[in-house]
Simulated assay, not measured.
Amino acid sequence: MAGKNKLVSPFIKWVGGKRQLIDKISPHLPKQLSAYTYIEPFIGGGAVLFHLQPKKAIINDFNAELINVYLTIRDDVEALIAHLKSHENTSDYFYTIRSLDRLEGFKQKGLIDRASRFIFLNKTCFNGLYRVNRAGEFNTPFGRYKNPNIVNEPTLRAVSRYLNESEVSIFNGDYAQVLDLADRKSFVYLDPPYHPLSESSNFTGYIEGGWNESHQIRLKEACDDLTDRGIKFLLSNSSAPFILDLYQNYSTTLVKANRAINSNGAGRGKVDEVLIRNYEL
């Protein structure tokens, strides 16, 4: 797609983010992608959206705090930048800000305050790991980084400009609501919480309640529905045998990805992921 701005890029770290996999994902996208409405029901850090920069898109995430950040960047980026400059990179301050979602009335706090808190915690917490407990409370510890890039003004302004100059609809809720909006002129990229390769590698803490096999099965049924409606989709997931078996009737390609979250540094490195699609290249 012509006229892409390289400054339009992810403004947060995100578990399973696709920035490093873009070169492997791109060859599996449909030809003439610009003719489609781009739909991404699990937007996360937005690496694929920001790489493609489609003129018409529908994005969604179940994480209300994350979607508030997207909306705030679109609607009031200068106020957000000003608020981000007020934060302190200290342990005591970090835990004070982290604790705000334990207090009554947090959901009623200003949208800019909440968006600023989200970015600050993301940039200063350990490993940039967005993780919540079963009550939906952020619980990643302080990262102790000397000079985290809390206020990335060029990227925030570029993303704001893209969201305002393109036709991007932003939703917060169950992914099914945006799949219902798809038609034959849509292309859907799905990047759900991954099925764990093993019990010890299980990480689904970026949404309250997590994901399990029943959620994966429901998503596969949604993919079957897209196929029945003649809508192209590409899905990323782990290469767990359960996933490979679940999607055995679709085209699958294994790709190598860097594993970014593991408490043991020796456990990080290349790991197989799978790209699943319902169309011919």
Results as ranks from 00 to 15, higher is better:
residue 181 L to N: 02
residue 56 K to H: 07
residue 50 F to T: 06
residue 134 R to A: 13
residue 267 G to R: 11
residue 260 A to N: 09
residue 139 N to M: 08
residue 219 L to C: 03
residue 30 P to R: 03
residue 167 E to H: 10
residue 251 S to P: 00
residue 128 G to Q: 04
residue 119 I to V: 13
residue 96 T to A: 13
residue 241 P to F: 09
residue 222 A to C: 02
residue 273 E to L: 08
residue 158 A to P: 01
residue 212 N to I: 04
residue 158 A to Q: 07
residue 85 K to N: 07
residue 51 H to A: 14
residue 253 T to N: 00
residue 2 A to I: 15
residue 50 F to Q: 04
residue 150 I to H: 03
residue 176 A to M: 10
residue 56 K to A: 11
residue 99 S to G: 09
residue 172 N to T: 11
residue 103 L to H: 06
residue 153 E to V: 15
residue 212 N to E: 12
residue 41 P to L: 10
residue 74 R to M: 05
residue 143 G to D: 01
residue 91 S to F: 09
residue 205 G to M: 14
residue 89 N to W: 06
residue 221 E to L: 15
residue 70 Y to C: 03
residue 232 K to I: 02
residue 109 K to S: 07
residue 184 R to L: 03
residue 231 I to V: 11
residue 129 L to Q: 06
residue 18 K to G: 06
residue 189 Y to I: 11
residue 266 A to N: 14
residue 181 L to S: 05
residue 15 V to N: 08
residue 227 T to Y: 05
residue 84 L to M: 05
residue 175 Y to I: 09
residue 32 Q to W: 01
residue 43 I to N: 01
residue 97 I to E: 07
residue 65 E to Y: 04
residue 81 I to A: 00
residue 73 I to K: 00
residue 79 A to F: 01
residue 79 A to G: 12
residue 51 H to E: 10
residue 216 Q to L: 09
residue 188 V to D: 13
residue 122 N to E: 04
residue 9 S to I: 13
residue 153 E to D: 05
residue 76 D to H: 03
residue 8 V to D: 01
residue 45 G to N: 06
residue 145 Y to F: 10
residue 17 G to K: 15
residue 67 I to P: 02
residue 191 D to K: 08
residue 1 M to N: 10
